[in-house]
């Protein structure tokens, strides 16, 4: 497998609605064959003179190395601002500058253990490719998908084909169990004897998933959705407080060292601060 990202001009193969989200498929040569589940692409928005300079980062939902039109990557997004609004207006054959695949993928277990995959909103997107890899290794895959409302669930039907069991939660109870995506986790971990939780979604969800995994003594792999300017490790904007293998707490780039982190390594409560003891933090009463 080739490694490292490439920068290519992608072409829109399709753009479809998926509930509250958009599902974009781009033909992008050389990206798919390098992709591992959990990695992301950084897309430029607008034309070459676009006033929006910062790339938008999206988890890779599907990566197909070959197809009728060449290798393709798929992403799922919600319209949050002008950049995603531009993406939502793309038409077939439009060009999009793609950099990817980027970041560290999900680490896979060496043994065929049972795994729980937790997705919040469109955070479930990277979990389907992951489920395939896990099943190839003989792992039993259980999925928990949650969202605020039913139309903000992504891939609930696909999950039924992909996973041994699927649990759905919504905050308003419109679909599945009323409550948070972490509510069914203790019971599910007990029933399935799972040893790993994989999660992707909003920061608050990842914090809660990490807390559950710590409480029940299972390993967790969390993919963060931090905003980034470049996606390739040069801008230093997407940092989180993370404890490294050497035990040192650093503000760590989620694009290069992440987006997947061990849930026990991230100081979830301290995101957005420079916690005391961080490597290079101002000593004493600094700012």
């Amino acid at each position: 497998m080739t490694s490292g990202p490439v920068q290519v001009t992608g072409r829109v193969l399709s753009l479809k609605r998926a509930g509250a989200y958009h599902h974009l498929t781009l033909v992008a040569e050389g990206v798919a064959e390098r992709t591992h589940p959990g990695q992301f692409v950084a897309l430029a928005v607008g034309d070459r003179n676009s006033p929006m300079l910062l790339r938008r980062a999206f988890s890779i939902y599907r990566a197909r190395p070959s197809g009728a039109y060449g290798g393709s990557v798929e992403v799922v997004f919600a319209v949050h601002g002008a950049g995603t609004a531009w993406l939502s207006q793309l038409r077939q054959h439009d060009e999009v500058d793609v950099v990817g695949p980027l970041g560290h993928p999900f680490a896979l277990p060496k043994q065929p253990v049972s795994c729980v995959l937790v997705g919040g909103g469109y955070g479930s997107a990277p979990l389907f490719g992951l489920a395939d890899r896990l099943k190839e290794r003989g792992c039993a895959v259980h999925m928990v998908l949650g969202a605020a409302t039913g139309d903000r669930l992504f891939g609930a039907l696909e999950a039924k084909r992909s996973a041994r069991s699927v649990t759905v939660t919504t905050d308003d109870g419109s679909v599945g169990i009323e409550g948070l995506v972490t509510d069914p986790l203790p019971d599910l971990l007990g029933r399935t004897g799972s040893e790993v939780i994989y999660a992707c979604g909003p920061m608050a969800m990842l914090r809660a998933v990490s807390a559950v995994s710590a409480e029940y003594g299972v390993w967790s792999q969390c993919a963060v959705e931090e905003s980034m300017a470049c996606g390739i490790g040069v801008c230093m904007t997407c940092v989180l407080p993370v404890v490294g293998d050497d035990g040192i707490l650093r503000l760590t780039r989620s694009c290069v060292e992440g987006p997947v982190f061990g849930g026990d390594r991230v100081l979830w409560d301290a995101v957005g601060t420079v916690p005391e003891g961080t490597w290079g933090a101002p000593a004493g009463a600094g700012h």
């Binding site: 230093m236 995101v271 957005g272 420079v274 961080t278 933090a281």
Partner: peptide
């Protein structure tokens, strides 16, 4: 060594 400032660190 320098930790830098807390996030958010950028605005388009």
């Amino acid at each position: 060594p320098r930790s830098g400032r807390p996030t958010p660190r950028m605005a388009e």
